[in-house]
């Protein structure tokens, strides 16, 4: 007869037994190979669950969720213009129909919006405004995206522009790095409402702690977002200048 039933064994694995009961299980384990195997199976299952779901903790939080938690008094959440389509003043679409994952989990993991820290960054330095629950460039970031050229880098500017290109949806997108702390890198795409920020995350520091921006320095999430959008080649200096002259259309 085996006095250690599944409930006891499970409580042992889950650390829910008192010291005396745990000692009793320890003693039983020392002489029962079958019990040892069951404990091992349970622990393996637990480890498998954690391995599958713990990475969610490190995923960027979708903007529509962090936007819900902004202080209502923050002026930046108020849409700066009347939203198209008459969605009203609510900056967040309820039960947004948009699917946040693209087909394929690998693509999804890398392309999924990358806006961890958006809320405090936005609250801190005014480079981001929310519009209909989506982040848009504001202030110095908006100005840099509209005017700065990667072919004319300014080492002292707060924002460095990286690649510019026409995305597969026809919009012009530009990668950027914000040098001022907290350093951020992201992708901005031009829309009638301004520079939308589909990707925004921590910048990858280059060696020596300096922030550079070359294509190879892009954080993986930004690089992945570029890869999925890029149609043709990135702009050269002449194309970049022409795109600015054309108002990024």
């Amino acid at each position: 007869m085996n006095p250690i039933d599944d409930d006891i064994l499970q409580a042992y694995v889950d650390g829910a037994l008192g010291a005396a009961d745990a000692a009793r299980v320890d003693a039983a384990l020392a002489q029962d190979e079958a019990l040892v195997r069951r404990v091992r199976q349970m622990r393996a299952l637990d480890a498998q669950l954690r391995a599958a779901f713990d990475p969610v903790l490190d995923e960027p939080v979708p903007a529509r969720l962090s936007a819900l938690l902004q202080p209502r008094a923050a002026p930046a959440v108020v849409p700066l213009a009347v939203p198209e389509g008459g969605r009203g003043a609510n900056p967040v679409r309820r039960r947004a129909p948009r699917r946040w994952l693209m087909p394929g989990a690998a693509l999804a993991a890398s392309v999924a919006l990358f806006v961890a820290g958006l809320w405090w960054w936005h609250a801190g330095n005014g480079m981001v405004r929310m519009r209909n629950g989506e982040p848009y460039a504001a202030g110095v970031l908006d100005r840099a995206l509209g005017h700065a050229l990667a072919s004319e880098p300014d080492a002292r500017a707060a924002v460095a522009i990286g690649l510019s290109f026409r995305a597969n949806d026809g919009r012009i997108c530009r990668t950027f790095t914000v040098r001022t702390p907290p350093a951020r890198a992201g992708l901005a795409c031009h829309t009638a409402a301004g520079w939308e920020l589909p990707v925004l995350g921590p910048a990858a520091p280059a060696e020596g702690g300096e922030l550079r921006q070359a294509a190879s320095d892009l954080p993986p999430a930004v690089q992945a977002a570029v890869d999925t959008r890029l149609r043709g080649n990135v702009f050269d200096a002449r194309q970049e200048r022409a795109a600015r002259a054309a108002g990024w259309h």
């Binding site: 969610v56 939080v61 969720l65």
Partner: peptide
Amino acid sequence: LLPRLRRLARVLAGQAADADDLVQVVLE
């Protein structure tokens, strides 16, 4: 709490999009 809430929702709801829809309802 948001990261943990998203993880919980992912276990319950399965797909990431459904899970974040659930998180949105919970936050509201």
